[in-house]
Design a protein around this nucleic acid. Structure first.
Lengths: 189, 189
DNA sequence: GACAAAGTGAACTGATCGGTCCATCTGTTC
DNA sequence: GAACAGATGGACCGATCAGTTCACTTTGTC
């Protein structure tokens, strides 16, 4: 289906917010970077906050689709895919323009738990957890939820550490730790 | 040594920034919350950014001192202290007013790696890593740096997850995972 | 009490903020 | 060419932003 002007606006807004932050990116600048006038932006979205939410929804959808497919490409088995999460993270961290996780940053800028932006960030992570737990179930983990929660912690920790930029290989470090946790849950490799 | 007006200003600024964010807290509001006029603030600090840096330095110093002492209180041995990190995190997460990690939020709002605020956030984490590696060395880990990096990832992941607020017990989850990793590195408990 | 140091409040500067308005332009359809 | 729909740019609104100014007040020291 042909993308509408609105879809292109959201995609470009997503990119601008990711690169320079939510509050630090004013509407004048956003209009300049998206090539859409402020009048048109406010035709599509009642407020800046609604545009941010639309951008986060787009990111959530794109990222989770991409992640599922990439994990399936990287490994044949659920167990293999659990570990491949960290290969995928390594690929992401090495990309030009890597600037951490959109949702972690959104929840840092909008801290109230009831704030829609914060809530949507939490929901994104909850959906990722559900997917990892499913892989853990399929891999035969005795406590799939516990294994999934541990792997999520390694994943979040790797992202934050990569963004801080003080450690050489957070994805590699996380993968090594994940290997130990997966072996402890599922038996030796 | 008797705290100066400047010290009190920095401590109150720290609290305001932690609660409501750096960019979202304007200087008029800061003056109102600290009880120090803008004129005086600018007598002590040339810019808002310098005040933020002073607040981060204070937080780094206070937190690392507190953390070292608290870990020593929670466990007698280096190995015990490695695990006690997560008890300390649990205590912190349960505090009223918990709002994530000052430094993770600072690096989210100031993303350029060369930006002084981002660099100071990375430095804070590097110092924490050095301390954890020292504990791992003292505990007899064959690869203390690797163990320390893994535990740091769990720590950062737990903090971010606690701030997002979608999981019930991130500190407990991280502790369970840390126990496995420490056992793998140092032998059974 | 005199004086210096420190601090104040509010007005100010120039700039930017989110959001609105409107005359004008562009593209499409008939 | 006319009519209509969609979009624009920049001026505008009221508010806030970081930082400055200055007449005045308070505090501390001798």
């Amino acid at each position: 289906m042909r993308p509408t002007k609105r879809d292109e606006l959201v995609a470009k807004a997503l990119s601008a917010f990711y690169r320079t932050g939510f509050q630090a990116t004013g509407m004048d600048r956003l209009a300049a970077e998206t090539g859409v006038s402020k009048t048109s932006i406010y035709k599509h979205f009642r407020t800046k906050e609604e545009l941010i939410l639309a951008a986060l929804r787009l990111r959530d959808e794109q990222f989770r689709n991409f992640r599922t497919r990439r994990l399936e490409a990287l490994a044949d088995t659920p167990r293999g895919q659990l570990l491949a999460i960290f290969d995928l993270l390594g690929e992401w961290f090495r990309q030009d323009g890597f600037r951490g996780c959109m949702f972690i940053k959104a929840s840092a800028e909008y801290q109230e738990p009831e704030h829609p932006i914060h809530a949507q960030s939490a929901e994104h992570k909850r959906l990722l957890f559900v997917h990892v737990r499913k892989l853990a179930e399929q891999a035969g983990a005795p406590d799939p939820a516990a294994l999934a929660r541990a792997l999520m912690l390694l994943e979040e920790g790797a992202i934050v550490t990569a963004h801080l930029g003080y450690a050489p290989d957070p994805a590699g470090d996380a993968k090594a730790a994940a290997r130990v946790l997966i072996a402890a849950a599922l038996g030796p490799w």
